[in-house]
């Protein structure tokens, strides 16, 4: 499992709707903010890059120091972003694909308002399980 891994889903309106620290490293308050800032800054690059390819998985789009940002853009332009320090690209891709499935299931829930925060604890549990599996 990766030491540092911060997973975040950003809605098409650039609002984070799901956040999870899934790394094995102990959490630090300022580090959590740092992760958010790095992910936020990477949105600029994703914005340009998303329209240059038809692939959903954009691989590593940005980096800061040792941390790499990998991004998966869904058809609805929701962005699954992972800040990580590991280089396991295949695992990350699988992780994104399975999380995407979960996210679609959330979207299919008639009680879920697209673009609103995902509060399902089931989703959270599954995402963390996937992170343990692939990252």
């Amino acid at each position: 499992m990766a030491n540092t891994a911060c997973f975040i889903i950003v809605s098409r309106n650039d609002i984070p709707i799901y956040e999870a620290e899934v790394g094995s490293a102990p959490k630090k308050e300022e580090a959590a903010h740092q992760h958010q800032f790095i992910l936020h800054a990477a949105l600029d690059i994703v914005q340009d890059l998303a329209w240059t390819t038809s692939a959903m998985f954009l691989k590593a789009v940005d980096r800061f120091n040792d941390l790499v940002v990998s991004v998966y853009v869904t058809a609805g332009h929701s962005r699954l972003m992972l800040l990580h320090d590991s280089r396991n690209e295949d695992g990350i891709k699988s992780f994104f694909q399975e999380v995407h499935e979960l996210y679609v299931k959330i979207l299919l829930n008639p009680l879920y308002l697209p673009g609103s925060r995902i509060t399902s604890s089931h989703f959270d549990t599954k995402v963390r399980a996937l992170a343990r599996k692939y990252l």
Partner: peptide
């Protein structure tokens, strides 16, 4: 025009 990147740095 990369405002968020600029802000980050």
């Amino acid at each position: 025009g990369y405002q968020r990147k600029a802000a980050f740095f």
